[in-house]
């Protein structure tokens, strides 16, 4: 019974997306017709699409306002996000109707075009990221708040140092000392590399764990216990770095998208004033 309910929910989500997409396409078609109609009747199609575009940008910006006003009963953020998503599709189509060239010729208009295109591209990336990164983040065993990742990283490094110091048997200490000092200690102490942050992978993790496993045959039971604990710390640290990389990516995207959105809105308002001033 529970499976059926889950299945129904999945279908419902797909249907909801299909309906939303169909509605968006219908609205775009309607506005396309109105745009052509305005053009055919020698009206001002550029003003029609321009003000529509500006209105779309304002609606898109309202998502940020909604997030900053959680105390007001303005509906769920998820609903606002869905609206944001489809209005984004809509404004992209209106932009294509509005501009004579994808990138305008004048300095300001070219800047405005590029900002719009960057916001649009980042929005589509955000759509992709919001569909993939959360799954990756939840696949990791432990969840961390972003601001506490450094604290967690330090805790893991401290625990690794403490674990290594627990090793009293000389032969085992001799086996692990060099590996710990050359490989494990820098791994636990240092922050992840930029390459890892950009493209997080399991290569580093597999290499360290493989090397630790190779040392097992030279260790007694106590040494193996310590090595196993160090391996657990390696996995924990790698998970943490993975969380860091993905969360940082999402957060950087949000900052990039929001900063450009502010610039875009301001530039669009200036463009509107210029267009009104120079019209006719």
């Amino acid at each position: 019974m529970k499976e059926v309910s889950t299945h129904q929910k999945t279908i419902s989500l797909k249907q909801r997306r299909a309906v939303a997409l169909a509605a968006t396409v219908c609205v775009i078609v309607i506005f396309w017709y109105l745009w052509r109609r305005e053009s055919s009747r020698l009206g001002a199609p550029a003003f029609f699409t321009g003000f529509t575009l500006l209105a779309g940008l304002v609606i898109l910006a309202l998502l940020g306002a909604r997030r900053r006003l959680p105390m007001l009963p303005l509906g769920k953020v998820s609903t606002w996000t869905q609206i944001h998503l489809y209005v984004g599709f809509f404004t992209t189509a209106i932009y294509i109707m509005h501009v004579p060239a994808i990138v305008a010729g004048g300095m300001f208009e070219a800047f405005l075009s590029l900002v719009f295109l960057m916001v649009t591209a980042s929005g589509f990336y955000g759509l992709y990221a919001s569909r993939t990164l959360p799954k990756k983040l939840t696949a990791v065993e432990t969840q961390h708040r972003f601001d506490r990742l450094d604290w967690g990283r330090n805790q893991i490094a401290a625990m690794a140092e403490q674990t290594y110091s627990e090793l009293t048997e000389p032969s085992a200490r001799e086996v692990l000392q060099t590996f710990y000092q050359r490989a494990l200690s820098p791994f636990f102490i240092s922050r992840p590399s930029l390459a890892y942050v950009i493209v997080p992978s399991g290569t580093r993790r597999r290499k360290l764990l493989g090397d630790l496993k190779e040392l097992d045959r030279y260790l007694e039971s106590d040494g193996r216990r310590v090595a196993g604990k160090l391996a657990a710390l390696v996995r924990r640290r790698d998970d943490l770095d993975y969380q860091f990389a993905l969360q940082l990516r999402l957060r950087c995207w949000v900052v990039f998208h929001s900063i450009l959105s502010i610039v875009l809105l301001a530039a669009a308002l200036i463009h509107m004033l210029i267009a009104l001033r120079f019209a006719g």
Binding site: P100, A101, A104, G105, G106, M107, F108, E109, I274, A275
Partner: peptide, 10 residues
């Protein structure tokens, strides 16, 4: 920059 260079819709 001259305004005509900045503001030029095409």
């Amino acid at each position: 920059v001259p305004s005509a260079t900045i503001i030029r819709p095409g």
